[in-house]
Write a protein that binds this DNA or RNA. Structure first.
Length: 605
RNA sequence: UGCCCGAUAGUAUAAUGGUAGUACGACAGAUUUUGGUUCUGUUUGUCUUGGUUCGAAUCCAGGUCGGGCAACCA
């Protein structure tokens, strides 16, 4: 017998017996290593703990479930599905679900079906089917099979017949108001009507006639016979089929009865042998029904698991609200770069990789959340910093004359991407007249202003150090021109001047500049969580979410811009070409700004 | 006031009875020919009250707060 005081704690497995001294050792290292040990030991210690972390990379609750199912031999491989209703465009919340469903299958060597939940013909359209497929493909995922709930209409109809014959479904002639009333409330049980006791034969006849089109919309429904007193409202004889004489985008006019979500989704999962049917939290109360159909029909037991949907600060995420923004012209379209739709992010310049990383970083859990949009911005900056092509573009020009520059022009070299060790270079023309950003000059500069001011020096990126000798004002007192001298020995890459300046400015040569339009986007809403505010969410729309600068001045290399390219306009932000670009005009979208600690400094005063 | 779900730094997310950690943010510093990047450091947390236990974020009970459910929507 072991001493109970030493064995009482650890249970479950014996490794904790070993863990205790190990943990104690780790604790001591934590306590003493930083001060007592030299840096090399600290480094080694850190590496070890990092390795440990790699190995112990924790699983989210879905991964845990799947691993257990696989380990226990419940399934040989997993099959997930992404089941959108084609009644709108996909948003970043769907991207989370897509990354989850496809990502889980990839991780565990399984597959994922794309299944359109097209059971309501009046809201759905092929336009949406196409956009959904495009968005998933853009994210880089491949579905195993492209399926439609409507493919199963005949099968689902037979399931309904089976329930009727088991005495588990009946045709109800009540109006929707009557049904709602008879359902009771969460605190009062529902009451049965006379239709509930119809015979199997009568139900069979009536349901057949429903299918044949003998009745008008709303005249009859098929209901499951479960429990009108259930504390779960979804179990109070839910509607299975309703009559809709409507044209379906795939089945045309073949059907005039359509299954409800609850009668279609679980059975579709079952027909496809989906092992893990993952949906959002609001479907939790539907799960008993999902299981009830599977049990009563004795079909493949798919299982439903729920996770919390994504919410992002300064935007809205419901299809209904997004639709409203489009229809009421608060934005130009579903793919307006301010929209949180996948197509909006795509047009704005987000990369699939940045969205994958984002989806990974936010994790998966079952609690309500509101993710700070700065995390998404971090993800896209991190990606674009490594991959984007650097260019110089002046948005608000101030002319600078380099008074001692005598040549007509000089060609300078600029690296296309300093983050890339194998970077290539482009030519940048330099001349006597250049534009700099108006905000980069101040007549009277505060202490920490590292830019141009009378008598002050700055470096022109990829070029020379210049000194501001004088400035010219017009009649209204506006500064119209700067007169500077350059230091010939200070050329980038071969600077022998010995001069050190704190500021570096982007610029373009006046005679070589090309024009473009840039569209600067800000958050769509003024408040973090528009949906939780009083009144209409549209009252909180940011009126300055779009700032169009019709003419900016860009270095000539930008003339060769391609739609797939991503640019960093030095000191300005990340940009990409917009589809509104024409022969006459280049149009760029600002994907995201650069981090700007100077702006913060200024704000602080 | 029925049923269901949830609660860990500002925001997310780990720790599965034994070190409360990570990321983003914020702040400070170093580096920098982008006030970018990179690097370093600092900051802040287990909803509450009891109980079980040598030991509780974790298990149990009560409470509080948040969310969902009464569509012929999904």
């Amino acid at each position: 017998m072991l001493n109970s005081s030493t064995t009482a704690g650890p249970k479950k497995n014996c490794t904790s017996y070993i863990d205790v001294p190990d943990r104690e050792c780790t604790r001591r290292l934590h306590q003493y290593a930083p001060k007592a040990l030299n840096s090399q030991v600290q480094k080694a210690f850190k590496t070890m703990s990092e390795i440990k972390k790699e190995e112990e990379k924790s699983l989210n609750f879905l991964e845990e479930i799947i691993e257990e199912d696989l380990n226990r031999g419940r399934y040989k491989s997993i099959l997930t599905r992404f089941p959108p209703e084609p009644n709108g465009y996909l948003h970043i919340g769907h991207a989370k679900s897509i990354c989850l469903n496809f990502g889980l299958a990839q991780k565990y060597g399984g597959k994922t079906n794309l299944r359109f939940d097209d059971t309501n013909p009046v809201t759905e359209d092929t336009e949406y089917v196409d956009s959904i497929k495009e968005d998933i493909q853009w994210l880089g995922f491949k579905w195993a099979r492209e399926l439609y709930a409507s493919d199963y209409f005949e099968q689902l109809y037979n399931f309904a017949i089976a329930l009727i014959q088991k005495g588990l479904a009946y045709v109800d002639d009540s109006t929707s108001e009557e049904i709602a009333q008879q359902k009771g409330t969460p605190t009062e049980p529902g009451i049965a009507n006379t239709y509930r006791s119809r015979s199997v034969e009568e139900n069979m006849r009536l349901f057949t006639e429903m299918r044949e089109g003998k009745y008008k919309d709303g005249e009859k429904v098929l209901r499951a016979k479960i429990d009108l007193a259930s504390p779960n409202m979804h179990m109070r004889d839910p509607i299975l089929y309703r009559i809709k004489h409507a044209h379906h985008h795939r089945t045309g006019d073949k059907w005039c009865i359509y299954p409800m979500y609850d009668f279609a989704h679980g059975q579709s999962d079952s027909i496809e042998n989906i092992t893990h049917s993952i949906c959002t939290l609001e479907f939790i109360p539907h799960r008993p029904l999902y299981d009830w159909f599977i049990e009563k029909l004795e079909i493949f037991p798919s299982h439903q698991y729920e996770f919390s949907r994504l919410n992002l600060t300064y935007t809205v995420m419901s299809k209904r609200k997004l639709k409203q923004l489009v229809e009421e012209k608060y934005v130009t379209a579903w793919d307006d770069p301010r929209m949180p739709t996948i197509s909006g992010f795509r047009r704005r310049g987000y990369t699939p990789r940045s969205i994958h990383v984002f989806a990974d970083k936010i994790g998966v859990a079952k609690r309500e959340n509101l993710i700070d949009v700065s995390l998404l911005e971090f993800c896209i900056r991190e990606d674009l910093n490594k991959t984007s092509i650097r260019r110089m573009v002046v948005f608000d020009p101030l002319k600078v004359v380099i008074t001692n520059f005598e040549a007509a022009m000089e060609i300078l070299k600029g690296e296309n991407n300093p983050e890339d060790p194998h970077t290539t270079y482009r030519d940048i023309p330099f001349s006597r007249e250049i534009y700099i950003e108006r905000e980069d000059f101040m007549e009277v500069a505060p202490k920490k202003f590292f830019r141009l001011a009378p008598g002050q020096m700055v470096r022109l990126k990829h070029a020379y150090i210049i000194k501001c000798d004088d400035f010219v004002k017009d009649a209204n007192g506006n500064i119209t021109e700067l007169q500077c001298s350059y230091i010939p020995e200070s050329k980038s890459g071969s600077d022998t001047s010995g001069i050190h300046v704190k500021g570096t400015l982007h610029w373009v040569s006046v005679p070589h500049a090309i024009n473009a339009e840039v569209r600067l986007y800000d958050r769509l809403f003024k408040v973090e969580d528009p949906s939780s505010e009083e009144g209409d969410f549209k009252d909180y729309i940011n009126p300055n979410s779009l700032d169009v600068v019709e003419t900016v001045y860009a270095e000539p290399a930008l003339k060769q811009s391609k739609f797939d390219d991503r640019y960093q306009f030095l000191r300005k932000g990340y940009f990409c070409l917009d589809k509104d670009t024409s022969e006459e005009k280049l149009v760029f979208n600002r994907t995201v700004t650069l981090k700007d600690t100077w702006a913060k400094e200024v704000k602080k005063g």
